[in-house]
Amino acid sequence: MPDVLNFHFEVDGDDFKSAGHASFICKKNLRQLGISPEIIRRVSIAMYEGEINMVIHARGGSADVNVYEDCIEIILADKGPGIKNIKQAMQEGYSTATDNIRSLGFGAGMGLPNMKRYTDYMDIKSTVGEGTTITMKVNFE
């Protein structure tokens, strides 16, 4: 599977207001490639949720979007605190976000479930104290 295109983004962990910037640029880039709106929507939502998670929990990180012939792969990597219990974190409604985050409209415990819902493949590798890497794929077909 040849690598067609890569977009790399650094996600700023201190700036809640710019959260979503990488997803927005990614969306624009994918649109320019002529990828269908529904695929772009799925990639954008999954990536934004990941981006927000990295801002809320991990003081930022990096996002790589690889466009292959048959799918789009999103790799989100951070050096945050890690996820103690992935199964629990995947449950809708479970959240460790603070009240401050909730007052901004986040922390509903929908981030990881949304990422799973909108992608065809999702893998979470996390080590407490070291960080988390999430790989997701959205197939074109």
Binding site: K17, A19, F24, S44, Y48, F106
Partner: peptide, 14 residues
Amino acid sequence: MSNINILAVASLSD
């Protein structure tokens, strides 16, 4: 909701 993150949500969910 009126904080700036509504823009990202509207944009990304189209």
